[in-house]
């Protein structure tokens, strides 16, 4: 009943390629986080402060990002835009999809963060003659980023794992690369087991570094 022979040698041989692909995974995840944080901040402020079309826009974005499958979001930037004649490379499809998703999720976290800051912080900043922009960038946002630091870390982990959907739009990140070798050698289990271990180590590393960074960043 159990007559599958494990062959790990091919996996070992392509390990350098897998590791390189995991760097691609990290790269797209990091970029999507940076974009997601910036857009997420704007969305949360729009949802909190804006009225009319701008608020509506932010709400739609957040609702779609949080309440539809991440895979569909990716497909939208791939096949959806493709149907409209806009053809992104696999890298940009994944980057756009992940950024869209990150921004939506993070926006809700940020909104909670902004709400947790006493309104007098903004008043105090303005009373010193700071512009609205300065009050936000120097006073409010740094505090928000601290409040949502751990949810943000979680979102980063989620982005790393979510990027594996990239293989479905032909992106050669870790999963795509794994799939490529697996179907070439038919050592499907071995390759995906190896990839799973690499994902696991990446996530653990991210969590570890994030903890370390927190102690250096937040001395208050």
């Amino acid at each position: 009943m159990f007559d599958y022979n494990f062959h790990w040698r091919p996996v070992l041989k392509s390990l350098p390629d897998l590791l390189e692909a995991s760097l691609v995974t990290l790269q797209v995840a990091v970029l999507s986080m940076i974009i997601g944080i910036v857009i997420g901040l704007f969305l949360s402020v729009l949802k909190l402060k804006a009225r009319g079309p701008l608020k509506w826009f932010a709400t739609c974005w957040i609702e779609l990002a949080r309440n539809t499958p991440a895979l569909f979001q990716l497909f939208f930037f791939g096949f959806g835009l493709g149907a409209l004649g806009i053809h992104l490379t696999p890298f940009f499809i994944v980057l756009a999809g992940l950024s869209f998703n990150n921004a939506g999720y993070l926006a809700e976290n940020f909104r909670g963060g902004f709400n947790a800051i006493p309104e007098t912080q903004l008043k105090a900043a303005r009373s010193l003659g700071m512009t609205l922009w300065h009050a936000y960038t120097r006073i409010l946002v740094p505090q928000v980023l601290r409040i949502v630091y751990y949810p943000m870390t979680n979102q980063f982990v989620w982005a790393v794992l979510m990027s594996s959907l990239g293989m479905l739009v032909g992106f050669r990140e870790l999963s795509g690369e794994t799939q490529f070798f697996a179907s070439k050698t038919y050592r499907i289990f071995e390759y995906f087991a190896a990839a799973a271990i690499i994902y696991y180590i990446m996530v653990k590393l991210i969590l570890f570094i994030s903890k370390l960074l927190a102690t250096r960043l937040f001395r208050y």
């Binding site: 010193l128 003659g129 006073i139």
Partner: peptide, 26 residues
């Protein structure tokens, strides 16, 4: 507003900045 300093009932020093950074920022 630069000509009018304001101090509020709720202490609102900026918690992410040290004392000297709080004062030097503006």
């Amino acid at each position: 507003r630069q000509s009018m300093g304001m101090v509020f009932q709720q202490w609102n020093s900026f918690p992410h900045l040290t004392a000297i950074e709080n004062v030097a920022l503006a």
